[in-house]
Design a protein around this nucleic acid. Structure first.
Lengths: 153, 153
DNA sequence: TATTGTTATACTCTATAACTATA
DNA sequence: TATAGTTATAGAGTATAACAATA
């Protein structure tokens, strides 16, 4: 049997997070959550979540893109895109036209209203980026994106 | 009425993602998903999701921490932590002991089995970090974490 | 009166199986 | 036989309201 005295429990005053903060994954997740939160607040006026903005932005810069291409690019499961597309169509932000080469697919395009809204939304997104990275210099911001790309590309 | 000819739709061959890739939020989210995916695969042998690992790691480095402190530190809603804690307790990885100063709270501690498992799990997590950031030099890895902290702290 | 931990519950997000129309 | 889009559905993740016990 042990002769060591049993130390009474002490309360934790300050939580030590140094180990978790030494992990890239933890830091990347925390930073992402902060930016996504800011995005949700600032994009609420357009009624756009991050995924809606990504979808509309890809359609804006790739007129005629198909749902399949959106799914592959954004890692969305096809069934989960269906509702988003029909909602954006009901809001008269996008139209679906027959694909020129593939009778199974539909090409997605912004409507004039969609174009007008995205022009403003991309300005808001840029302002939001500036605010989220306010403590970074332009050079640090470029470095950060290069390093993040080295992880996921 | 317009005299402009209607251009027939063209198919999108290569999806242009350059705009999205100019946003820190997009890059941070994509990098996080890659690391989380690797985490899920490598930590499955321990039956730990990222949140379980974070909780156990904080308990390991802060013996006696309360549920409330875990929630605040990890941005978890208290009702969502209850199930995790009881599951970790059922797996005999943690114990709950009365808090020394606060009769409402319970102090959380690792069991010997919990300590043994987390010792291995943290080694796996470190290996995983190395693999996820294999294309980064040690200096770049340090820079990346500094820049991410500048966003979320 | 405020806080810790809890239950119940709802809402969102994500994933899978199976179908149709076309390639 | 494979692929684009769709439906139905299940599971995981996240959020809010309300309560008992204690501060």
């Amino acid at each position: 049997m042990s002769t060591r005295k049993t130390t009474p429990d002490a309360a934790v005053e300050q939580v030590d997070t140094s180990y978790l903060e030494s992990l890239v994954g933890y830091n990347a997740r925390r930073a992402t959550l902060v930016i996504v939160d800011a995005f949700l607040r600032n994009m609420a006026v357009y009624g756009l979540r991050p995924v809606d903005f990504s979808v509309l932005s890809l359609i804006a810069h790739n007129p005629g893109i198909t749902s399949r291409q959106l799914c592959t690019t954004l890692n969305i499961q096809p069934p989960n895109l269906v509702g988003m597309i029909s909602q954006l169509q009901r809001r008269d932000l996008i139209t679906r036209r027959p694909h020129p080469n593939d009778g199974r697919a539909m090409g997605l395009h912004l409507t004039p209203e969609g174009r007008k809204m995205m022009k403003q939304a991309e300005v808001t997104a840029s302002e939001l980026e500036e605010a989220s990275t306010a403590r970074l210099s332009p050079a640090e911001r470029r470095t950060l994106m290069q390093l993040l790309k080295k992880i996921y590309i």
